[in-house]
Design a protein around this nucleic acid. Structure first.
Lengths: 187, 187
DNA sequence: CCCTTTAAATTATAGTCATAATCCTAATGT
DNA sequence: ACATTAGGATTATGACTATAATTTAAAGGG
């Protein structure tokens, strides 16, 4: 049953959004085209009319996720008070973010899988990262090096906290990384 | 052809080591039992005589990888001069480590996949992390919070650097994180 | 208003997946 | 020395994989 151009575009967009969420939850290899399309309310047959391959969707869905993340950071940094990096850390290392991988940071969930994929996906990470860093350094008025270090630390922290079994250990990881980074200079 | 107990144990150990490397390279979902066993010089039929399931191997191979990593860090910190954290960062963020995921840090390659797996695997991360943190805080004479922040930052940094396409951007990420962490206190 | 185009559904294909049963054979216990 | 045991190979399982051809039916252009 053919859809209108409008509806077809909506369907395509819904597939990208669904993929962006499910890849973050299950990993690129953890979810298949059929299950993905079903979750988006379609069947697998419709997939190859809209995308060249799974790899192409991976690149597109990841770029979407990174852009979505960047918008969220921009908002948090705008609403932050006199210590934007601290505000970002508290928001990023929250229990909410811990629990909802599918809506959360794409770097934390998928960056470690990128080396196994094609240039289009890795280029999406390039672009996403440039954007993230410019947002961070501009809003928080720090140099690029500091922005990179802050981002690296947040990503590593939530990755570790999500990996461990003991909730107390996870809380320790989050707490240590929420602590004001300038506290002693020993970090 | 039945093997001696000794040979069977060697085979089992080789499967764990091979799995530890291949999981780091391809992800838990990226390599199957058959390919894994073949790489270890065996056939898939032999697998279920030695392991209960793939999930059980995942937990065991990850625990092995984390223990292997911890030994390497201990050595680096022992040989370090007056700034152990700096020495660790330089070793961890090296081109060699960037290029060889299969022999490198298990946190950086596999921690992001842990939330999708069972308690045995996540408990392996608990144990590995406790060990890593005690090595770090003792050898470098910093408190646990500083050790956690340092580790978080290194893991995030190499994950990001490996994800991007542009080698110059990767180098920027590594350089920023190699920079002495106490430099300005703004980090 | 008809004709072409095309999105989506259905179905097909060849491969791979984790798991397991069967069989062979040699190591081990007695 | 013989019976038992168990490690590994072969083969089988049914489910799932990415991809694609075919079919259906409605949208869009003329």
């Amino acid at each position: 049953m053919r859809m209108s151009r409008e509806d077809a575009a909506k369907n395509r967009d819904r597939v990208v959004r669904t993929a962006s969420r499910m890849f973050r939850e299950d990993g690129y290899d953890g979810i298949g085209i059929a299950a993905l399309m079903k979750a988006a309310g379609l069947t697998n047959g419709a997939f190859y009319k809209q995308f060249d391959s799974k790899e192409a969707l991976i690149a597109e869905a990841t770029a979407f996720g990174l852009a979505e993340n960047a918008k969220a950071w921009e908002k948090v940094l705008e609403d932050a008070g006199d210590d934007p990096l601290q505000a970002l850390a508290e928001w990023y290392l929250s229990d909410i973010h811990m629990a909802h991988r599918g809506k959360g940071c794409t770097y934390a969930t998928l960056a470690s899988e990128a080396p196994r994929h094609d240039d289009d996906l890795r280029a999406a990470f390039d672009e996403g990262l440039h954007k993230s860093l410019s947002i961070l350094s501009e809003s928080a008025e720090v140099d690029q090096g500091a922005a990179i270090r802050h981002l690296s630390r947040l990503i590593g922290a939530i990755t570790l906290a999500r990996a461990v079994k003991d909730p107390a250990l996870a809380a320790t990881i989050l707490d240590a990384n929420r602590a004001s980074p300038a506290e002693g200079g020993s970090d």
